[in-house]
Simulated scan of single mutants.
Amino acid sequence: MRLATLRRWRGMTQAQLAGLSGVTTSYISMLENGRRLLDRRSHISSLAAALEVSETDLVGGPHLTPDAEQARPHTVIPPLETALTTNRLHDAVVVEARPLGELARLVRETTTLQRQANYIALVDSLPNLLDELHFHVSHGREHEQRQALDLLIETCSTATMTAKHLGYPQLAHIAATRAVEAAHVLDTPVYRARADYLRIQTLTHGRHGWERNLHVASQTADRLQELRRGDAMSLCPLGMVTLTAGLAAASALREQEAYNWLEEAEALARHVPNSPKSNWGSFSMENVRIWRVAIQVELQTPPKQVRSSAYEVDIDRFWNSRIAALHADVGRALARDPSTGDDAVPWLSQAERYAPQAIRNNARVHEAVSVLTERARRNASGRALRGMAARMGVPH
């Protein structure tokens, strides 16, 4: 396992690593022996910091296999990186672009593809959109520049989430930073809030990362309180930042604070339509229920309670990526406890069916499948699980 390999590479004993990370020696032993999952955000960040490696080094980057649904999404990354790093906000590389009306339609299409976790379909469109929108920002009249900046923020949101979910946090941060630059030019509270949400989503963790992320999210939420004076849709970015603060609090092991943020998000959600597919960021009461599950998983709430919370979500209201994330969270929670491990497989399998490209590239799901596969090997069972393990490149 990577944890044991990295620990030995650093010349540490389990006790030394425990002392530096705040994780008990017995828990580290169970992680290295495959009896516990290394999928909790707080554990990943503290162990990576103690070992002085990145979180990707610890939990793994893309586990590329011959499976096309897992490997092909990564072909979008090189051209996406090129588009983001060679263009500047008012200095485009390309010298021509399609009309903004056509680009607006394509932006809507790429947003939908990302929400469906169909990253393969983004390969031919997303980098070109970034190029052409930068052209309009650089060369358009003032009203065209503002429209292009609006579309650029949305496109950078798609780029941010695509890179993040495929395991490229630094590229995700570059995309989010470009959205922040565009929002600064537009200089309206809603645009700034949307861009701030993206930036918070891509913050690194490090030794004190979740405490720091919580501080940033809390400060941002306080600064965005002016959005309460706007219409219902203005509340959506504030709501998403509030939910992010709740997850950061859970990851920083501040349980009461996490639930306080969750209650604040619920209060905001009462003032917006319960329409995840229509609202910005899917913010709605239904989406708050999904985030509740994610927060419970991070707080290591008993698996059966997590599953019960998931049953309260009307999944038909959501895009495939969010449905898959919900099933993955419940599956990971169930996988942590050997007594509910068998129940985890249907949830993880369902997550994979909804969004195979996202789930087969999810490091925390990979960890859950690895541990479950090891248990199944010991019990000489788990045909369905071994099939999923094969697709994810997990030894089985």
Rank of each mutant, 00 (worst) to 15 (best):
A4M: 07
G22S: 09
V23T: 14
L31Y: 08
G34R: 07
R40F: 03
R41D: 13
S42L: 06
H43L: 11
A48N: 07
A50N: 05
L51F: 04
E55T: 09
G61K: 02
G61I: 00
H63C: 05
D67I: 00
T75A: 10
P79I: 01
E96V: 05
L106T: 15
L106D: 15
V107Y: 09
N118T: 10
Y119I: 11
D124I: 09
P127Q: 08
E132V: 04
F135I: 08
H136I: 05
V137G: 01
S138N: 15
R146I: 02
R146F: 04
L152E: 03
L152I: 02
S157R: 13
T158R: 00
Q170S: 12
L171W: 01
A172V: 02
I174R: 10
T177V: 00
E181V: 00
L186M: 10
R192T: 11
A193N: 03
L198Q: 10
Q201P: 00
L203T: 08
G209V: 05
A217K: 03
S218Q: 11
T220H: 04
G230T: 02
D231I: 05
M233R: 14
M233F: 11
L235P: 02
V241D: 03
T242G: 09
L247C: 09
A248T: 06
L253W: 13
Y259M: 13
R270Y: 12
P276M: 04
S284N: 07
E286S: 15
N287H: 15
V288W: 02
V293Q: 06
V297H: 10
L299I: 02
Q300F: 00
K304Q: 13
K304R: 13
R307P: 01
S308M: 06
E312L: 09
F318G: 08
A325P: 01
A333Q: 05
Y354R: 13
A355Y: 04
A355Q: 06
P356G: 12
A358K: 11
H366T: 13
V369C: 04
R377K: 12
R378E: 14
S381Q: 14
A384V: 13
R391K: 14
V394A: 09
